[in-house]
Design a protein around this nucleic acid. Structure first.
Lengths: 152, 152
DNA sequence: CTAATTCTTGACTAAAATAGTCGGAAATAG
DNA sequence: CTATTTCCGACTATTTTAGTCAAGAATTAG
């Protein structure tokens, strides 16, 4: 799991699509204008998002992109995975250069943590993020948060 | 919150320190050998970790670094913050170029999500990672965290 | 004291990732 | 047909990452 500015751009653009995309597709030019991301860069990102089956495209006038499925079925982890093409991070894959060393141990510990972050982002959909705009859904509970976050 | 390979290196090195550091300091040369990170790069990272008060150093033969405090009191978020010097990510700070636009909205949504990840990593200590019994107890609760996502 | 060890610092560099540019081709609505 | 918009590949500039090098300061073992 990697979390770079590129992933942020992608999630931002997808959020824009989820917010502004109704029955009509949204053009990249619109997103570019609103989110201040260069059009050409958006093209690169959406090529990957399309390959990742997160959006569908429509060419021609009035065309653009729309979400490939409901905003409640598109998760942040999928977006980041689509644009980040995670490199494999192991420096000891297959090779036996990491016998009884500590390398594999610490590597495994990191992978574990990384996996948890991925797991977390796999449960947050665009819809979840958007729902936070609705004040009725606002529930500030610092106590509750600590209970769910800390080691139980 | 950014999550790059540099942060991974830092956490890995700190884990090595937590695992291999007993009463004696651990030299960067040792960490370099075990974790296959270049010595000079480790020097850069540990300069920042020291400034962040996460490690203390000891010069001379038999010297090296040791954790500044107990492994249960050093958290992953602190390590990443120390080496990443997070840039401010707002493209609309102060400036009024983001009035009723969608830019601020999506930006805040991302900030909230990013904040949640940071919050999560603020509760995971080196000790937690080393403690391998029952990793499920460290897992994030997406439902619980969504309740706490703030609205601005 | 001396010498080896280790951190400390700064300047520099190579490689990679990021972000953006450009030119054109294909599709399609009007 | 024509304007709009996705699509696609090649190219470039900038930034970040990772590593190198060299000099120097502190400390300790012997």
């Amino acid at each position: 799991m990697k979390l770079t500015t590129r992933g942020r751009y992608a999630v931002t653009a997808m959020l824009d699509l989820a917010i502004n995309g109704g029955s009509r597709p949204v053009s990249l030019a619109d997103i570019s204008g609103r989110q201040e991301i260069s059009l050409s860069y958006l093209e690169q990102l959406f090529a990957k998002l399309r390959r990742g089956k997160l959006v569908v495209s429509a060419r021609g006038p009035g065309g653009g992109y729309r979400l490939a499925r409901s905003r409640t079925e598109i998760f942040v982890a999928q977006i980041i995975d689509a644009v980040d093409e995670s490199v494999d991070v192991t420096n000891c894959q297959g090779k036996g250069n990491c016998h009884q060393g500590e390398t594999c141990l610490t590597h495994h510990l990191w992978e574990d943590l990384s996996g948890q972050i991925h797991e977390f982002l796999s449960h947050i959909s665009l819809g979840d993020l958007m729902d936070k705009r609705d004040p009725r859904h606002r529930r500030m509970s610092a106590d509750g948060m600590l209970q769910t976050l800390s080691v139980r």
